[in-house]
Simulated scan of single mutants.
Amino acid sequence: MATPDFIREIRATAGHQLLWMPGVSAIVLDDEGRVLLGRRADSGRWSIIGGIPDPGEQPAACAVREVLEETAVHCVPERLLLVQALEPVTYPNGDRCQFMDICFLCHAESNECRVNDDESLEVGWFELDALPPLEEFALHRIKLATEDAPTWFEGMGEA
């Protein structure tokens, strides 16, 4: 994920201290029930699509923007899947942050996808029984989206 300019400005005065950050992720399904994934340029791993909202940007609008920017897929948010504080991360440059992830189920308006920025090496649609290796973060969100589960809140019981 590329660092937004507003974060660079904050880091200029905050240094490497832990920043509490909003994050948005999207489980995008097409009409065939396949899930849209991207292989990240920073890690080389497959993952769901996500990013950081711009100041003043609504989370659902951010999900739509991130999906379009990374995959060229137009999508429509359908419902909130999850709200979860993630574990703090430390980046190679020493910056530390903790994300509050807001995950949406989105429906693709078309299934033509392509790498649309420098954050992804590949993008593609995957059948649920043929997913590439994914972190538990992504698998949990895909499960919530495909089981029509209620919105899941960390610390409020298991889904």
Rank of each mutant, 00 (worst) to 15 (best):
G124V: 13
D5R: 11
G38Q: 14
E147T: 14
R45E: 14
V76R: 15
V67R: 07
C75R: 02
I27Q: 04
W125G: 02
H140W: 07
P88Y: 07
L81S: 06
V24R: 00
E135I: 01
S25N: 10
L131E: 01
D5L: 07
F126L: 07
E158V: 15
G155I: 03
D101Y: 14
Q58N: 06
A2L: 09
R34M: 03
L139W: 05
W152P: 00
I48Y: 01
E69T: 14
D118Y: 12
G15Q: 01
A85S: 10
V123K: 01
L36I: 13
D95Q: 10
N111C: 15
H74S: 15
T151M: 13
P150A: 13
G38F: 12
H74C: 10
S110D: 13
C62I: 11
P22S: 14
A145C: 03
N93M: 09
A72H: 11
H107R: 11
N111W: 11
I52N: 04
A85F: 03
E119A: 15
D95A: 15
R39M: 09
E66L: 04
E122P: 08
T146P: 07
A12W: 01
D54I: 07
T13D: 11
R34T: 03
R96D: 04
P77I: 06
S25H: 02
E78F: 06
G157W: 02
V28N: 04
P22H: 04
V83N: 02
D148C: 09
E127T: 14
I142A: 04
I7K: 01
P77M: 11
F6L: 04
A61R: 01
